[in-house]
Amino acid sequence: MKFEFTAVNLEKIERILPKYPDKKAAVMPVLYIAQEQNGWISGEAVVAVAALLEMRPEEVLGVVTFYTMYHKKPAGKYHIQVCTNVSCMLRGGYDIFNQVRAKLGLENGEVTDDGRFSLEEVECMGSCGTAPMIAVNEDYYENLTEEQVDKILESLQRS
């Protein structure tokens, strides 16, 4: 699928460039914009970003693959991230991870067939004091109980 930045996004990018003395430095924010527009970073998106920032596509790809937050394949409409690192683990992080797995029928890294949900086990999210936690796309849900997780998932399933 062809990828082209929308006019609005090109404008956004114009505003980012002056923050750095070097075009290439804008690659991370520009990739975020590409991801927002496309849902994930496709090969075409990599090529478009590279052309825009006068980089080699492989250089851009190197950045994409280094950072976990750039999706290398389409994520679900609701990307569910469950922290299982120590502070969460001590307060039931794995129970919640397993609960989400069972409820959505997903293993780590999978997407539901209808493309609505994806699941990712993540490292510490900085919510250790409000553990356990999950994040749905950009939103944190903290201090969770099993019932609350059920409620969150059900409301997402209905929406």
Partner: peptide, 26 residues
Amino acid sequence: YIHKGAGAYICGEESSLMNSIEGKRG
């Protein structure tokens, strides 16, 4: 300016952080 990371713990290490700001792998 605010520079947004993208999910790599290593970018907290100071020299990796600078590479990340420069648009490189961290």
